[in-house]
Design a binder for these strands. Structure first.
Length: 886
RNA sequence: GGGCGGUUAGCUCAGUUGGUUAGAGCAGGACCUUUACACGGUCAAGGUCGGGGGUUCGAGUCCCUCACCGCCCACCA
């Protein structure tokens, strides 16, 4: 083996090897299925840390299940991402000095497809670099033919069921993207703004005198003066006595001279501002509802791009909304209508895509009624047929689902699934999966209609309208396919908390509604990757770590393992570059351990030997290996990825490398010791494989565990040793504990050496007082580990000279070769004595308490007694030592 | 305003149903170039588990309360 592990070479070699050999591919029919669909990243996306985390978790689960022998499918794909993709292509067009309108719809959409063909492979290429064992033969795209057919079918069915309707509604509108946004596509951010206090004169009131144009006026506080031309009322709270006399009167809308009524509505808060609100039904969601209740006129004063239109008044027409705000404020001031201005911080909505300030805007949109499909989706989690991991996310799910709003699904974009609604005649509409079917339906209503009379709705559907079908549209729905029958429902869905509503909840609803069963059994929610300061990683902050850079610097395995080790499902993960050194260092450790084996004849040329009569240390590693195998499977069953990573890390590093490899160097029977190491190492490699696929594959081949052309990824995940093996080798908890005790003795003597500053090169004389007959058999290994010239044994309880210490193995004594600073030692001993005295005192009190001895489990009481005795003995020893240094 | 979390060593976090003297990694300290590995080894140090009550023989763990931090949802213009 080479001295240094070449991660890049291994990654470049093994991924294509796996993919070409079809090791990721699954076909229905054989064995118990385990299926997972990947959360499809945006086709415009590039791999970020969130993907790395999300996909590491999935690949660990998927590789582990595959090694367990499950027929495993991890289905990859990408999302057509309506707004995001259209934006990317529009930006490219802009560089050519063109707008999408210059191309026209068809050419533009073709242009986006062109872009997709050219660049859409970026993220799937990057996913390969992570090592994802996804079945690329089944890769899907939310806008491919099959998914599109599913979308049309779903829209039509929901429409026929009365669950889709078209309505005039106030929607969140992104003026930059030129489309409506769903509520959850709007991000609210605190913004420093102002509250303008404006005087609205009471109709017919006389002219005022100093600066005020009218004597009688009411004061309105607003954050959005630019919408003033769209006001159609002012409102007060019905319980507000201050203004009761005004209700029913009219006031004059400043700058326009238009008279508008004063109404009363519960929505108005008496305490906020002046207690009087201007009502602009076309430009504010609340005002819209108030307007509906009171039958107010809706005056839309803006164009699609948030510039003012003619209804705003000739003076303001054509202005941008913020420019218009300034103009109106200045005109109000000039006209004496502006009373004063206060600073005010409020929440302003921004487009989640382009971050433009969102405008509330009146328009006709398509909606899905969500209450009916939500009910069974709530029930499925309540009755446990679908489980959130960690469980607490179900509360958030319920909270949202129980207050669910209708879903605005139309988007004024060109890139996306076109709404399958067709208009003809004067306002008649039919909804059908294909234009042909639509024509047929239209003809049924009006036989004179021809294809040319049908005009398809220009809008497209929200991207999530295709991704909510992902777990079954990707398996062939609406056809009744074998895949669907075999792989649906999927087993685990792994995703971050931020798309529980966008995606997870909607998939639940769609799965139940169209398939009759929830789309997955477990919803595994992980945190978000944050920077060292706890901020969300984002391009604008420039605090993102690039997983590709980390792969380049540390290797994919290092990235994966580090992520698994530092990520808890329970909370968000803070990362910085240094954290990925853990994984890199671990790779180096694995590589060197493998090299050590090869150098000692336990490499590819190894000739198997029967393992018989292992020593205590050998029994220990066999036992520890067995325990590690069992533990790993059981904690992975619970999705405790972090615990699993830690367990395998500790097993490999501490048990195998720190102790067993050191033992093996001077083992009494090296052939057997290395035969055991070879077996243990092979198990360890397989335990590691789900976390670190590349290096484990490379090492497995280098050491000859796997034949050329085969792969560790198809090897069986180790389950520990059989009862027969354990019996044959005489493995037992007692022996395991015995070796642990021996290690304690070794560690203690090392500490004594350090304490008394005995040079590392110096050989010491040690004595151990123990009644355990097995101890004498360990003399050689003790000598080696303690760097001792001699190890003598004394009977248990023998009164050893100082300095000696009590361990689980017995009392250990180190003969002092050099001089010791008596004063310093005396001081140190006194401190330790007082600490011990405290332990003894509290233990005595505890054991004197009858309640404790009566209620606590027997083992706990016994352990407390044993510990007390031990501490008393330690204290007695120390006192002797104290005399020695007095 | 509603909901959900978090607060344990300098930093990042474990701590499964309450039960020994609360653990790990990193950083920092001392020592060690012992031929698998300095991306290493050995050892030591570091915590009144956010504050205050309560339940219990026993609380980091359960209950109440307060404080601070974070996230999500939401129509106070």
């Amino acid at each position: 083996m080479e001295k240094h592990y070449d991660a890049k070479a291994a990654e470049a070699k093994w991924y294509p090897f796996w993919e070409k050999n079809g090791f990721f591919h699954s076909e229905p029919g054989k064995g118990e299925p385990y299926s997972v669909v990947i959360p499809p990243p945006n086709v415009t996306g590039i791999l970020h840390m969130g993907h790395a985390l999300n996909q590491t978790i999935q690949d660990v689960l998927v590789r582990w299940r595959r090694m367990q022998g499950r027929n495993t499918l991890w289905l990859p794909g990408t999302d057509h991402a309506g707004i995001a993709t259209q934006n990317v292509v529009e930006k490219a067009l802009k560089k050519e000095g063109k707008r999408r309108q210059d191309l026209g719809r068809e050419a533009f959409v073709e242009r986006v497809w062109e872009w997709k063909r050219q660049y859409g492979g970026t993220i799937v290429h990057q996913q390969r670099m992570l090592g994802n064992s996804t079945d690329w033969k089944r890769e899907r795209f939310t806008f491919d033919e099959g998914c599109s057919r599913a979308v049309a079918k779903v829209f039509t069915q929901l429409y026929d069921e009365g669950l889709i309707y078209k309505g005039n509604y106030i929607v969140n509108w992104c003026p930059r993207c030129g489309t409506a946004l769903a509520n959850d596509e709007v991000e609210h951010e605190a913004s420093h703004s102002h509250l303008w206090y404006v005087r609205y004169p009471v109709a017919g009131s006389a002219k005022g005198t100093s600066g005020e144009p009218y004597k009688d006026y009411i004061m309105v506080a607003t954050t959005r003066p630019e919408t003033l031309p769209g006001d159609t009322a002012v409102a007060v709270n019905p319980k507000d006595e201050r203004y009761a006399h005004l209700v029913g009167k009219t006031v004059v809308l400043p700058l326009t001279g238009r008279e508008i009524p004063v109404i009363s509505d519960d929505y108005v808060e008496k305490e906020f501002g002046t207690g009087i609100v201007k009502i602009t039904p076309a430009h504010d969601p609340n005002d819209f509802l108030v307007g509906k209740r009171h039958g107010l006129e809706e005056i839309n004063i803006m164009n699609d791009d948030a510039t003012m239109n003619a209804l705003a008044g000739a003076k303001y027409e054509g202005m941008g909304r913020f420019e218009c705000r300034e103009a109106i404020v200045s005109d109000l001031e000039a006209g004496g209508f502006l009373d004063h201005v206060e600073d005010y911080d409020n929440q302003v909505g921004h487009c989640y895509r382009c971050h433009e300030t969102v405008e509330s805007r009146l328009s006709k949109q398509w909606f899905v009624k969500m209450k009916p499909p939500a009910a069974p989706a709530i029930e499925a989690v309540k009755n446990g047929s679908v489980r959130f991991v960690p469980e607490r996310w179900s509360k958030i799910y319920f909270n949202w689902m129980e207050n669910i709003q209708d879903w605005c699904i139309s988007r004024q974009l060109w890139w996306g699934h076109r709404i399958p609604a067709y208009y003809f005649g004067d306002g008649k509409v039919v909804v059908a999966e294909t234009p042909e079917a639509a024509l047929e339906k239209a003809k049924a209503a009006d036989p004179s209609v021809s294809a040319a009379d049908l005009r398809q709705d220009p809008d497209v559907l929200d991207t999530w309208f295709s991704s909510w079908l992902w777990p079954f549209s990707t398996l062939g729905w609406p056809e009744k396919t074998r895949d669907l029958e075999y792989y649906y429902p999927t087993a685990d869905l792994v995703t971050a908390q931020d798309i529980i509503f966008f995606w997870v909840a909607r998939m639940m609803m769609a799965g139940i509604h169209f398939m009759g069963r929830p789309p997955f059994k477990n919803i595994v929610i992980h945190g978000i990757v944050r920077d060292a300061q706890g901020r969300k990683m984002s391009k604008s902050l420039g605090n993102s770590l690039d997983p590709l850079e980390l792969i380049d610097m540390y290797s994919a395995d290092a990235l994966r393992f580090s992520i698994a080790l530092i990520t808890s499902l329970e909370c968000d993960t803070k990362v910085n570059k240094e954290k990925f050194e853990i994984g890199r260092n671990f790779c180096t450790k694995i590589w060197n351990a493998a090299r050590f084996m090869e150098m000692n004849g336990a490499g590819a040329d190894f000739k198997p030997v029967e393992i018989a009569e292992p020593t205590a240390d050998e029994k220990h590693i066999l036992w520890a290996t067995d325990a590690a195998c069992r533990k790993l499977s059981s904690i992975l069953e619970q999705y405790r990825i972090q615990d699993a990573a830690l367990a395998v890390y500790d097993f490999f590093w501490t048990q195998i490398c720190d102790w067993y490899v050191e033992y093996a160097k001077d083992a009494p029977d090296k052939t057997r010791a290395f035969a055991i190491l070879r077996d243990v190492f092979w198990k360890a490699l397989r335990l590691l494989h789900p976390f670190m696929p590349f290096i484990t594959e490379e090492v497995a081949h280098q050491l000859g565990y796997v034949e050329a052309g085969e792969s560790i990824m198809l090897a069986r995940f180790p389950e520990g040793y059989t009862d027969a093996e354990k019996k044959a080798w005489g493995l037992s908890a007692e022996t395991y504990d015995f070796v642990n005790a021996k290690r304690e003795a070794i560690t203690t003597l090392r500490a004594l050496r350090a304490e008394y500053k005995i040079p590392p090169a110096a050989f010491v004389k040690a004595t151990i007082a123990t009644g355990d007959p097995r101890a004498r058999g360990e003399e050689a290994s003790l000598k080696k580990a303690m760097r001792a010239e001699s190890v003598d044994f004394a009977p248990a309880g023998a009164d050893l000279p100082m300095p000696s210490k009590i361990t689980s193995f017995g009392t250990v004594y180190l003969s002092l070769e050099g001089l010791v600073d008596k004063a310093a030692e005396s001081k140190r001993i006194a401190a330790e004595l007082s600490k011990l005295a405290g332990f003894v005192k509290s233990a005595e009190a505890k054991l004197a308490n009858e309640n404790f001895t009566a209620h606590a489990p027997e083992a706990v009481v016994a352990e407390a007694r044993r510990k007390l005795e031990e501490n008393r003995e330690k204290a007695a020893q120390l006192e002797k030592l104290a005399k020695l240094f007095a």
